[in-house]
């Protein structure tokens, strides 16, 4: 359960990224956040695991108040069960896929085991199982920088699954993939959401991807929520309100396939 109550974020340079956001997300929901770049999508999801600190309002994630008092060890323990997936995958190059997934386990380790990079048999089996869940077990011992973009995003997904998360935050997970791969990755996301009841919050620039895969859509414009409802309820007018203009080709992913 994630509860935003009048949450705002103002950056030190004066930019107001979010104002008065009130939003409830239940466990197991799949939510897409759409809007122009710069509308505050990234800020919104980074607030959830306190990669960014809110400046006003109240944010409660799984009964933990996310505020300036959440720091140090409690903050790290809180982040343990919130996964995060990025647009550029953020895998560690020059090391194997398995080591990348095992990286999600390092937070549980003591100092010596961290330094030596020691992982137990259970850790390794969990990591391999996570790779199996996203269907790339056969790539486990290959270097991560030798994979294609779609495979990399699957490894990133496996990395968050190895955290055994209750929430996955996805920051533009398919924006740097081609349409076919994007479709596959989004199918993975939906399957994970349904099978393991993991809450997924995904920032999406591409409207059609969001509408195709996600049940609940939140539209933000200039740091404010201007729409919140099921994807079937999204109309041309609502999109115009969110984007403050007509949709362009850049906002659509799958249309390009027809052109090709």
């Amino acid at each position: 359960m994630i509860k935003f109550r009048n949450v705002g974020k103002r950056y030190p340079n004066g930019t107001v990224a979010l104002k008065n956001v009130t939003l409830d997300i239940d466990q197991g929901e799949f939510v897409a956040i759409i809007g122009l770049s710069g509308a505050g999508k990234s800020t919104l999801i980074r607030l959830v695991n306190k990669m960014i600190e809110p400046t006003s309002g109240e944010l409660v994630v799984n009964d933990t108040r996310v505020d300036e008092k959440l720091n140090g060890f409690p903050l790290r323990r809180f982040r343990r069960h919130i996964g995060m997936v990025f647009q550029s995958f953020n895998l560690v190059p020059r090391t194997t896929v398995l080591k990348n997934v095992l990286g999600a386990k390092i937070a549980d380790k003591g100092f010596l085991a961290s330094i030596l990079g020691y992982y137990s048999k259970k850790d390794q089996l969990d990591a391999l199982e996570a790779l199996h869940k996203v269907g790339i077990l056969d790539k486990a011992f290959i270097r991560a920088d030798q994979l294609s973009g779609g495979q990399m995003q699957r490894v990133a997904l496996a990395r968050t699954l190895a955290q055994d998360p209750s929430i996955i935050l996805a920051d533009e997970p398919v924006a740097s993939l081609d349409p076919v791969t994007a479709d596959m990755i989004m199918t993975d996301f939906r399957r994970i959401n349904e099978e393991y009841k993991i809450t997924i919050i995904a920032n999406m620039h591409h409207v059609d991807v969001a509408l195709k895969f996600v049940r609940r859509v939140v539209g933000i414009r200039d740091g404010e929520i201007v729409f919140d409802g099921p994807s079937e309820a999204v109309t041309e007018d609502i999109l115009k309100r969110i984007y403050n203009r007509e949709l362009t080709e850049d906002d659509i992913m799958f249309k390009k396939v027809e052109v090709v």
């Binding site: 695991n49 990669m51 903050l75 790290r76 323990r77 809180f78 982040r79 343990r80 919130i82 996964g83 995060m84 990025f86 550029s88 953020n90 895998l91 560690v92 190059p93 990286g103 999600a104 390092i106 937070a107 990133a156 990395r159 968050t160 955290q163």
Partner: peptide, 13 residues
């Protein structure tokens, strides 16, 4: 440094 951010987001110090 992007992977560093990703690992920090898992709760690592």
């Amino acid at each position: 440094m992007a992977p560093y951010e990703a690992i920090e987001s898992t709760g690592a110090d």
